[in-house]
Structures are given as C-alpha cells and as structure tokens.
Simulated assay, not measured.
Amino acid sequence: MKILLTADPEIPVPPILYGGIERILDVLVNDYVAKGHDVTLMAHPDSKVPCRLIPWRGKQSQGLANTLVNTSQLFSQVLKGKYDIVHSFSRLAYLTPILPLRIPKLMSYQREPTLSQVRKAARLAWKNSLLFTGCSNYISDQIKPYAKAETVYNCVPISRYDFSPAVHTDAPLAFLGRIEAIKGTHLAIEVAQRTNRQLIIAGNIPAEGEGYFEQQIKPYLNDRIQYI
C-alpha cells in the first residue's frame, strides 16, 4: 500500500525526549516499511525515519496561518501522491479539503476529541471514506454517536524491553507524560498516597500546565513523591 502518515509539526519522529504520539508513529513507520509498504510521513523536519519525509511548512499546530499553510500542503501532497490511505495523527482541520474525496482517511485521537469538529468532518466526508480511532474506549465512545469509530490501543515495541516477572515490593510507581490535568498526574499522586508507595514523576511542563503543576503537583512533592 501507499500510505501517507501525518504527525503534529512541533516534535520530531521519533522524539528526542518527550513525545507520546511521535513514538507511536515511529513504531508504525518502521513496521509498515519492514512489511514492504510505500510510506510517506509529514512531520517535523528533524524526524529520522526510514521512509520519505516531508517537513511541514507551518511550524506549529496552533494559529490560523500555520493551519492554513499545513492544510494546503497536505491537500497538494494528497493530489499528487496517489495514496491508498491517509492516516492522520495531526489536526483534523488539515484534512478538510480532502474530506469530500474518495480516498480512505483515518483520523486517530490520543486525547479527548473536539466533537463539534468531528460532526463537521463526518458531514463533509465522502460516504464511508472517514474512520476515527481513539486510543481508549473513553475517546472512541464519544465519537460513535456522530461518526464511525473504533478503539485501537497504543502499541509497545516489546523487543526493546526486558520482561521481568516480578518487581521488588518497594519498587516505585512511575508517571511519564506531559504534566497537565488531562494526563492525570494528580491521580498518580493520589494512588501513591493511598497505597503508601513511592512515586517518580517525569515529563515536561507546558506553559498551559504551569498553574496545574504549582497548585496540584508541587505541594505534594517530598522524599516519597518526586519530580525529576
């Protein structure tokens, strides 16, 4: 198959440090190529992938100018690329011009969807050409009243890890992810407190998450609950 994958423009694939969606894309790209598929990825220019890379011209996901530039770029690429499918992990808005086209489109969500955009996309899309996926039932169940959606859990490249059938009774819990309310760092702290377990928190604090960190995370840090 000839597959076009899209990532958000901010973080390379694979990510240098944090980047959950970008790690999933890295696994998909490598597996698709290994299986003989013709893969193109639209992503950050510093991405290092074994397929054709097309850097986004718009450098951010937010902002009207960036959105228009990247939407136009994706539309142009689809028209000349003759792909069998477009699989988007980037903004749904980028798909707008190709929604009425017959080409199969797969939009994957890793966080809570904006349902007003889902409804609009479903109305614009060519019949049965658009499918949504969510990485949890919580996400996909929100979409199902408005469009076809399935749950596809995130994958893990198990060959990169050593399996341990048991851990020490005092092994710490770990939270790895972006520090903001939607990721549930405060819930990890609550679990650690209730179970009297150590907790190690690691992840970046985005600008919009600074208040959350100061109010709901930092006050609970101590020798048992640590942010590194």
Results as ranks from 00 to 15, higher is better:
109 Y>H: 12
9 P>K: 06
64 L>T: 14
30 N>P: 01
191 V>I: 11
143 I>S: 08
22 E>H: 06
131 L>W: 00
186 H>V: 14
52 R>M: 07
181 A>E: 09
196 N>G: 08
166 A>L: 10
197 R>V: 01
101 L>R: 07
114 T>H: 12
139 I>E: 07
85 I>S: 11
27 V>D: 09
15 P>Q: 02
88 S>W: 04
197 R>H: 11
137 N>S: 14
173 L>C: 09
147 A>W: 00
160 R>D: 14
182 I>L: 11
152 V>L: 14
174 A>E: 06
84 D>G: 14
81 G>R: 03
43 A>D: 08
87 H>G: 06
41 L>G: 00
180 E>A: 04
67 T>N: 04
129 S>H: 05
133 T>D: 03
225 I>R: 02
16 I>N: 02
155 C>A: 12
138 Y>P: 02
217 I>V: 10
219 P>G: 01
19 G>E: 14
93 A>Q: 05
121 A>K: 07
94 Y>P: 01
42 M>I: 15
162 D>Q: 14
95 L>A: 07
140 S>A: 11
149 A>M: 11
199 L>T: 09
75 F>E: 13
181 A>K: 08
160 R>G: 02
34 A>S: 12
143 I>G: 09
144 K>L: 08
152 V>M: 14
46 D>E: 09
71 T>G: 12
125 A>P: 00
216 Q>T: 14
205 I>D: 09
43 A>P: 04
140 S>E: 10
132 F>S: 07
182 I>W: 10
88 S>L: 02
120 K>H: 10
97 P>E: 07
164 S>P: 02
51 C>W: 01
182 I>R: 13
54 I>V: 14
206 P>W: 09
